[in-house]
Design a protein around this nucleic acid. Structure first.
Lengths: 215, 215, 215, 215
DNA sequence: AATGAATGAGCCTTCATTCAT
DNA sequence: GATGAATGAAGGCTCATTCAT
């Protein structure tokens, strides 16, 4: 693809204090992005929804992409914070694993539009934003693994390749949620939460202690 | 301005016909879509890659979207055919469940660009294409469930809400593949195929026959 | 392909507001339309003539057709206003009928390009514009007929099928003007104004009062 | 308007003998032109309607414009021939003048689509076609005037500026027909034929012979 | 901070015409 | 004579972004 990326220098937005205006723009953008996707949303769509001028929008966010980035990063951070809080409030391996599934499910249902937006894979974020997201993920996943490491060490959870844990625990609920968000499944994820939580635990729980010895 | 389309004469799009040209355009489009996404691919990108004229492109596909649709539908059908073939070649519940996971993994690795494209959620297909896809999925999933129904009836597999099977069986491998496709995970899905296959079987297998009786 | 427009967000066109820019665009468009016709005028032609950007043009008028519509409607309204003013300044049937012919002639000569444009029949106006034009015509023709009705009632003018008046009064001058506008006739309509005015009156004047009685 | 006219050299069509194919193409073109106008008709529209290939169409007519020209010229010639025949079959000034109006009316009603097409002013004919049309008109109008000259000489018809005759005689009926063709008037021209014929005669008839002498 | 007119690169698509078969 | 795939110039329009007020 020979097309030159025409990203103009660095146009970072003035990080003003959180005005009501800023919030209303983000809210408006979320509505638009959810309805027709980032690419199909025009800056005008956002203004119209936020009832503000183009100028104002650029004053606060610098670019259309700037809005998308802020919305995305805020969303991710909020999700991560929630998840870690829930995790820290859990006790023991089983409860923790199941808490992950439950939280994923609950948060998605409570924040459906945002969750839907966070699933988009078609936004071409700036290098800066990508780096930021990577860092945020790194910190988050590190904390998560730190939480689970003792359980694995103790044998409460299986020893698996590092990349296998997330798919085994969250894969089923995520798959379900994805289909629910896109309208393929009717039944709210909540009703299957327990089932997927059990399955998650079942997939990663440690083998019964004396099992091998007795065989 | 809400202008009414005042076209009075009938102007419908041209139809199919397998030319080498058609194939090369689809190939080119796949390359572009995979690299930068549907929205960021221009018709010119496709031409350039396919070494054909705009006119030719429109002669065969009617629109940029038309190309995307054909590519998508072809891909889905190829995947489905492969999966069903594998399924019919399996024997027994365990082998069948594991075959699903294995095929998903193998096909993805063998058809990485196409698999990647089939994961896009940002294309606004025409009503017609959406209907077509829905029908294709319906037929496919019907056959799959018909295959597994006897196993469930016989007790080889658990009785679960219908919507739970796919997430439980394919969720983990899909989640892994998705991350691998987007470059977050390095290790090829192949190396974890067995692990996810086992997990899938473990998640849906029936309870041991006489278990309850003996207790 | 018969694609359904899947735009979900509301995107309506901008509205009016009298800027100098607007006027200059209309002026430019008139020049172009008159020279090569609506279909053969490109948006670029208009920009070039108006010395403005494409964007500006679309900002103010929404589409090429939008410009044509505004120009047309403005022209018609200006003509109608002028005609009604002249009519109201006339006294008696004969003076009124002749005033119509004279005004038609004078206005055309004074506003040659606009008159020429108003004769085009090849523009495919939007449903809205057509409705607007219909309404404008209805109001205009109603007033005109209201003005003449008393003369007919009084016997100063003949009783004729409603649709016959306009052709009888304006037909000849219009036919002449049409040919003059398209360059077939050299002699300015002004020089034949009196002749056509007399003919118009002759065609619709009432029969001599006592004529029948004496016979 | 700085646009260069890109008329390529001389691409005249092979004047084959009148095939059925040629006729069906002209018929198809007429339908299209009448429905959406010349500019809005595509070559494909014509093929589709004529059920022939693009190649065939170009084989016979050389270009889209070629079709329009042939259709137009044929139409004009047919009209002129008919008019002259009617004229020659008339006797006396009054009968001749009224025959003109009647024929105009009848022919239009009988050949509505063609008449409608002949009213279009938006086709940019080739220089050659324009010259041809001019010559055809010259011959026609010459014959017409030759027919009427004796009547004027004899005093049966008024002496008027040459350009005034056509508008006075045909103006009203043409104006009516034009509005009828574009759907503004419902009532068929036929029903007003007599009225317009009388008006035409009234507008150009000579003054009563002894009138002045007696005064 | 806010406004909205102005900008123009670039997009998707159309369509008359050509030409090898 | 017929066919229809191929061509590519050109067109109307969109939309992120700028900037004077």
């Amino acid at each position: 693809m020979g097309r030159t990326v025409t990203r103009k220098l660095d146009r970072s937005a003035p990080r003003a204090g959180t005005t009501a205006r800023r919030a209303s723009v983000l809210q408006a953008a979320l509505v638009c992005f959810t309805e027709v996707g980032f690419e199909n949303t025009t800056v005008q769509d956002i203004q119209r929804e936020a009832r503000c001028s183009v100028g104002s929008l650029y004053h606060h966010f610098g670019s259309k992409e700037g809005i998308a980035e802020e919305l995305f990063i805020d969303g991710i951070e909020r999700f991560n914070r929630g998840m870690l809080r829930k995790l820290r409030a859990s006790s023991g391996a089983e409860d923790s694993v199941k808490a992950v599934v439950r939280f994923y499910c609950d948060w998605t249902v409570r924040n459906r539009p945002l969750a839907s937006y966070l699933h988009s894979r078609d936004i071409d974020f700036s290098e800066a934003a990508r780096a930021r997201l990577k860092e945020i993920y790194r910190e988050y996943i590190t904390e998560v693994f730190e939480w689970f490491t003792p359980f694995v060490a103790r044998g409460d959870m299986r020893v698996l390749p590092r990349e296998a844990y997330v798919p085994l625990i969250s894969g089923p609920i995520q798959e379900y949620v994805r289909r629910w968000l896109s309208g393929h499944y009717e039944r709210s994820p909540g009703s299957l939460k327990g089932l997927f939580a059990d399955a998650a635990w079942n997939a990663v729980k440690g083998l019964p202690r004396g099992a091998g010895a007795q065989g």
